[in-house]
Design a protein around this nucleic acid. Structure first.
Lengths: 217, 217
DNA sequence: TGCGAAATTAAACAATTGTTTAAGTTAATC
DNA sequence: GATTAACTTAAACAATTGTTTAATTTCGCA
């Protein structure tokens, strides 16, 4: 009898635990929290179901582990933009818009789940974890807007609402295929709007123009 | 032995079926689709669980029935704004902003669920029903923006993205308590931001100013 | 009053859920 | 090589899910 090769070979860099995490991100992203069962995840990751609880305790803790693991990714980049002395305030805003469009497009399913979770607001622990990410990012972006006012480049503006417009517009356009088709109503059925560079550019340019006309003196 | 009064007396205007619908809206809004069980709904409505399937068939059909029942509420109002000859284009936009802020604040839980459903995009039938509502509204608002360009009042603008900014900003601010607290960071713990008229006004004024500076020539 | 359709009920159904158990294997340490 | 801890497994657990059934009651109408 032959011994067939196992479906997964754990290499040493990404061990079984982080492999589960990767699969979990994928499934949670596609199906949401309630929509993803532990058994789905176990079989998709090719591990015994009890291993997930062995590593992470509970389903909710698993989700929290995911959130934590992605937590610091964008904060550093945002901080970098804010403190860049070579950029004017409006240039920072423009860079930030591009960064966010890119980020959401790249991980739109994940962002989708973060937003569903923060909206529905069950699972308090999880909500707090997500809220912390949003908070850190929000503070930095607000800072950029307020800096622009202090140095005389911008008109006075409610920085929190400016953040809401940038994030809100991007989310609205990109987190739902249905809505995306409404926004760009001449969408070719075959082309995927989320990989189409023209659409990405369109949204970016629009938001920058919107911010210029509202913020600049 | 006494016969105690039943928990609910069905009056003739809103019979048992529509009573179930009302309760279902409430529970779906608070807990989402997956988060609401038929048993929860049955006991909240004070009816036998089998009655719900008797009236509506399945859980999903029940949700669709809700969506249909709310479908035409805002379309008429929007159409009215668009065709109002006494208003300039920018006045129409402003009226529309106020209308949407009001609408979302009034039924925020329901809008929350609509958005979660349209984001996750499981349950194709349901998604199509929700998409149709969004589509109808979207078309009208886009029309207002495009009218404004044709009559020389507005600069050329991507009407779809303007809609996204209005809807996206309002949703981002009002569909999550967590995010709302980030936007208005000096929030009193005790006051409810969603009933506070100051916050409602703030968002409305901001969006109007944003649209004026972007759209007007 | 009596017939038949509609309404209502408690119970059962079958499937799935997240989690735990208890027995097993593997691997490293002394 | 023995001891211990980490890992892995199949099975069971207990709870919940949406839906259906089959028996019964209610009610309008002839």
């Amino acid at each position: 009898m032959f011994n067939f090769a196992p479906e997964f070979i754990w290499n040493k860099m990404s061990d079984k635990k982080t492999h589960i995490l990767d699969i979990a991100i994928e499934l949670f992203s596609q199906n949401g929290f309630e929509g993803t069962s532990m058994r789905d995840m176990a079989s998709a990751a090719g591990v015994n179901i009890a291993m997930i609880n062995y590593y992470f305790g509970t389903k909710e803790k698993l989700f929290e582990a995911i959130v934590e693991s992605r937590s610091n990714l964008s904060r550093e980049m945002l901080e970098e933009i804010r403190t860049d002395k070579k950029l004017s305030s409006i240039q920072k805003i423009e860079k930030l818009v591009d960064f966010h469009v890119e980020k959401v497009l790249e991980r739109r399913h994940f962002h989708k789940v973060l937003h569903t979770e923060v909206m529905l607001n069950k699972r308090p622990e999880l909500n707090r974890a997500i809220g912390n990410i949003f908070r850190k990012n929000s503070v930095i972006i607000k800072g950029i807007v307020e800096d622009g006012y202090k140095n005389g480049e911008f008109k006075k503006a409610d920085s929190g609402l400016v953040v809401s417009t940038i994030m809100g517009t991007i989310n609205h356009v990109f987190l739902s295929r249905t809505i995306c088709s409404l926004v760009f109503d001449n969408l070719d059925e075959s082309t995927d709007p989320f990989t189409d560079p023209k659409i990405k550019k369109k949204v970016g340019e629009y938001l920058k123009q919107l911010m210029r006309s509202y913020l600049l003196k």
